[in-house]
Amino acid sequence: MNKRAALWLWLVLALWGQPAASADEAARQSVRIAIVNVGTLLDNAPQAKAADAKLKLDFVPREQKLETDQKAIQQLEDELTLRNDAGSLPQEEKVQRQRELRDLQRNYARQMEDFREEVRVARDAAIDALQASIIQAIGDVREQEKIDLVLRESNYIVASDRIDITSKVMQHLEQKFQAQATLAAPVPAPVPGKQE
């Protein structure tokens, strides 16, 4: 009976100690949570500023041309109204000019609609690419910092500044941007006859 009691006692102690070891293990492996302000990153990341500059470079000249066209149409309309009011415009010429003006207005409206659609598509593509970069940067920082869970600014009520990783993610985005800019910079061609 002694052997059986000793075995029973050993089994009880072994089972009893198991949950305690799991609790100790859980305490040592605490969950790390962080927050990030995605809005700040979207507004201030160098990738955002570069995308905005590219959109302006791509579309401002066309926008200026459309503004010039609109002013020209308005000037033709004012001239037609002025000549019509003065009675110095023959009926046949008046009809012809009104037709030309309507054609110009229709053409302008189509061009403006096409322009707005192209700007919208380009802006949406830039935002998608920027969001993908930010998500990647958040993932990289999460991995580097060994963070288990990252919440965005709209998913919590109150948090300590201690767990806000927005500045770390911004720094990561800036480093990636600088690295990409360095890679994209053209290498100057050697000058013939000049020795390096």
Rank of each mutant, 00 (worst) to 15 (best):
D69R: 08
E117G: 04
A86T: 10
I127Q: 06
E113S: 12
L42G: 07
A20F: 13
A132L: 05
A51V: 07
N84K: 15
R97D: 00
I35T: 15
Q47C: 08
A34T: 01
G39T: 15
A86H: 02
R62N: 09
Q74Y: 09
A27R: 12
L13I: 02
A109M: 04
V95K: 12
L7A: 14
V36D: 03
D52E: 14
A86Y: 00
P46Y: 08
A125V: 14
L89S: 05
I73R: 03
Q29S: 01
G17V: 02
D58Q: 12
R102N: 15
L7S: 10
R62M: 03
K94N: 13
E118H: 07
E67D: 07
P19V: 04
I33E: 04
K56S: 11
Q98E: 07
L82T: 09
D124M: 07
A45P: 00
E100K: 06
A45W: 02
K54G: 04
A129R: 07
K71P: 00
M112E: 10
D128Q: 09
A53M: 07
L130K: 05
Q47H: 10
Q131T: 04
L42N: 14
W8V: 01
I33Q: 02
R83C: 06
A50E: 03
K56F: 03
K49I: 13
T81C: 09
A129S: 13
W16S: 14
Q74E: 15
D58K: 12
R32P: 04
A53G: 06
R28C: 02
A122P: 00
A132Y: 01
L130C: 05
D124I: 00
T68L: 09
A20M: 12
A26I: 12
S133W: 00
E100S: 04
A34Q: 03
R99A: 12
N107Y: 01
L9Y: 06
A26F: 04
S22T: 05
P90M: 04
V12F: 11
D114V: 09
T68Y: 03
I73N: 06
K71V: 03
A51C: 07
E25Q: 11
Q96G: 04
P61N: 13
R106Q: 09
E92A: 09
Q64N: 06
W8R: 03
Q96L: 11
I135F: 15
A45V: 06
A50V: 06
D24Q: 11
L76D: 13
A21D: 02
M112Q: 12
L57I: 01
R110P: 00
T81L: 13
A23Q: 08
S88V: 14
L9A: 11
P46K: 08
Q29A: 01
A53H: 02
D114I: 10
R116Y: 09
E63A: 12
E63S: 08
R97E: 00
W8L: 07
I135G: 14
A129Q: 13
A48T: 06
G87E: 05
A109P: 00
L11E: 02
E93Y: 02
Q111E: 06
G39W: 15
V95G: 09
E67T: 02
R116F: 10
W10S: 09
D128Y: 12
I127F: 08
Q70G: 12
A45E: 08
